[in-house]
C-alpha cells in the first residue's frame, strides 16, 4: 500500500515541479531534451577507470538545479533511492578486480575505482532524467516527441498511459485495502485469489478503455491525433542547448580537474 501512495505522491510532486515558471521551465522542451541526451551520452562514454573526468559534469545538475529552483533535498533523495540497485551490481567489481593501483600515494583496489565510477555515473544520469521531467512536464515532453517525428498515435498512447496511471493506482489501492480489511494478518494476495483479483481489474479496465474511446469518438476522434502548434523554438533555446553541448564536449575531452590540480600544485610548490 505504501508503494502506491508513494508512487502517487511522486507523480504529483514531479507534476508540481514541472508547473513552476523559471528560466529553465520556459525553455523549449526540445532544447532541454537535446541537452539531456548530450549530457547522458557524454557521461556514459567516460572510461570506467576514470573518476576525475566525471567530476566536471556535476556542473550541469548543480547549475540547472539552481536556475530551475528545484528543491535539493527531495530530489537528491529520489536520486539516491535508485543507487542501491547499482550498488548491488557494482559492489562485485572490487571482488573481481582486486588489482592495486596507487591513488595519490594510497593503495586502492582498481575494482573500487570502477565501482565509484559506476556509482557517480548513476547519480549523474538519474539526476539528468529527473531534471528533464521536473523542468518540462509530461505534456510538453510529449509535444517534443511529436516534433521529433515520433508517430502521433504512439505519443497519444503514451500520454493516455500517463494520464490513467493515477486513476488505476487509486483503484488498485482501493482493492488492496478492501482485500486487506478482510484478510487480516495476511501478507500479499493469497494464491487462490491471484486470478480473480487482477482479472476483475482487467475486465474493469477494458470497460474503462471502452468508455474513454467513446468519449474520444464523441468529440470527433477518427484515428487521427490532432494537436496544437506547440512552442516556438527561439534563440534562447538554441543558446541554452549550444552552451551545454559545447560544455559537455570540452569537459569530455579536456581534463579540467587535472589541469586545475596542476595549476594548484604548481602554485603551492
Amino acid at each position: 500500500m505504501s508503494n502506491i501512495s508513494e508512487a502517487l505522491y511522486n507523480m504529483r510532486f514531479m507534476d508540481d515541479l514541472a508547473r513552476r515558471n523559471t528560466l529553465v521551465h520556459r525553455l523549449h522542451p526540445l532544447a532541454k531534451l537535446a541537452s539531456t541526451l548530450a549530457f547522458l551520452a557524454a557521461v556514459v562514454s567516460v572510461e570506467r577507470y576514470e573518476i576525475s573526468g566525471l567530476l566536471p559534469f556535476f556542473f550541469y545538475p548543480v547549475i540547472v538545479f539552481a536556475l530551475a529552483e528545484l528543491p535539493i533535498k527531495p530530489m537528491v533523495k529520489r536520486i539516491l533511492m535508485v543507487e542501491p540497485f547499482i550498488i548491488g551490481i557494482g559492489i562485485l567489481n572490487p571482488l573481481f578486480d582486486q588489482h592495486i593501483v596507487m591513488l595519490g600515494g594510497v593503495a586502492v583496489s582498481r575494482g573500487w575505482i570502477t565501482f565509484l565510477s559506476i556509482f557517480i555515473k548513476c547519480g549523474l544520469t538519474v539526476a539528468a532524467a529527473l531534471i528533464l521531467l521536473a523542468t518540462t512536464g509530461m505534456d510538453r515532453l510529449a509535444s517534443a516527441l511529436r516534433m521529433l517525428g515520433i508517430p502521433k498515435l504512439f505519443v497519444l498512447q503514451l500520454t493516455l498511459t500517463y494520464r490513467y496511471i493515477s486513476v488505476l493506482l487509486e483503484e488498485v489501492g482501493r482493492i488492496l485495502n478492501a482485500y486487506a480489511l478482510r484478510a487480516p494478518g495476511q501478507k500479499g494476495i493469497h494464491w487462490k485469489s491471484w486470478g480473480s483479483l487482477a482479472g476483475q481489474l482487467i475486465l474493469r479496465t477494458f470497460e474503462r478503455a471502452q468508455s474513454v474511446y467513446g468519449a474520444m469518438c464523441l468529440r470527433g476522434f477518427d484515428g487521427e491525433y490532432r494537436t496544437g502548434d506547440g512552442q516556438r523554438f527561439c534563440t534562447t533555446d538554441l543558446a541554452y542547448m549550444a552552451v551545454w553541448v559545447m560544455f559537455f564536449i570540452i569537459v569530455r575531452f579536456v581534463d579540467i580537474p587535472g589541469l586545475l590540480g596542476l595549476v594548484v600544485t604548481g602554485g603551492i610548490k
Binding site: 510529449a142 500520454t159 474520444m216 470527433g220 494537436t227
Partner: peptide, 30 residues
C-alpha cells in the same frame, strides 16, 4: 456529435488528455 455534447458520469473517463487545456481543445481540433 458536433450538435450534441455528452458529459459522462465519470469525468475520469472523459478527461483523457494531460492538461485541462489540451482536453478542452481536443474536440475543436478534431
Amino acid at each position: 456529435r458536433e450538435r450534441m455534447g455528452m458529459v459522462f458520469q465519470n469525468p475520469d473517463d472523459q478527461l483523457f488528455m494531460t492538461t485541462v487545456y489540451e482536453d478542452v481543445a481536443f474536440g475543436p481540433r478534431n
